[in-house]
């Protein structure tokens, strides 16, 4: 068993286990911590897929930004410590059945799909390549994303501002 295979299965186990933790956990902060596990494992999987730039961006933006925002949101919005909002039993039951069926279906399709084997490609300098693609082929989406970010910034600031005193 080569190092790559071992690393993949360890990371896959971590990612899947953390995702399962998200499902099981009732405490919302523990859910966020499980999400951290998944995000970190997926970032390391990106390293395995030789998408280095993506891996670090995932760590910066997701783990270092979005997740902190989520934990911050949890702290602002939970008055009672350790408040538990358990899913209703009927909902959980139906959800489990549907999701399990979906997963089984997906796996069945995936295992049967006739992927023609293609030799994995090793990008020589992914950062420079990504930069050129972003400012070349994908220039319009790139600019649109920046406009969207500006809109989001203004919108979030407007939404979260304290209510004006009458």
């Amino acid at each position: 068993m080569s190092g790559e295979v071992l690393a993949f299965y360890l990371l896959a186990a971590l990612a899947a286990g953390s995702a399962l933790g998200c499902v099981i956990a009732t405490n919302i902060v523990r859910m966020a911590m499980c999400l951290l596990g998944t995000l970190g494992a997926v970032a390391l999987l990106y390293f395995l897929l030789s998408a280095n730039f993506l891996a670090v961006i995932q760590l910066v933006v997701y783990a270092g930004g979005t997740l902190i925002l989520i934990v911050f949101g949890i702290m602002v919005t939970s008055r009672t410590y350790g408040e538990k909002l358990k899913p209703r039993t009927s909902e959980a039951l139906i959800g489990t059945i549907v999701v399990l069926a979906l997963f089984a279906g997906l796996v069945a399709i995936l295992l049967r799909a006739p992927w023609t084997p293609v030799a994995p490609t090793e990008p020589s300098n992914s950062v420079a390549q990504i930069g050129q693609e972003l400012l070349g082929t994908y220039l319009v989406p790139f600019e649109l994303a920046s406009v969207l970010l500006l809109a989001v910034m203004i919108g979030a600031a407007y939404l979260a501002q304290p209510a004006k005193k009458e």
């Binding site: 989520i70 909902e91 995936l110």
Partner: peptide
């Protein structure tokens, strides 16, 4: 397969959790 598993977990969390931040997760 791993991605499908993550997707299914996410779907379950989205549909059953009652905490809004949980749905975001």
């Amino acid at each position: 397969v791993l991605a499908a598993f993550l997707f299914c977990c996410g779907l379950f969390v989205m549909t059953t959790k009652r905490n809004a931040v949980g749905i975001l997760i």
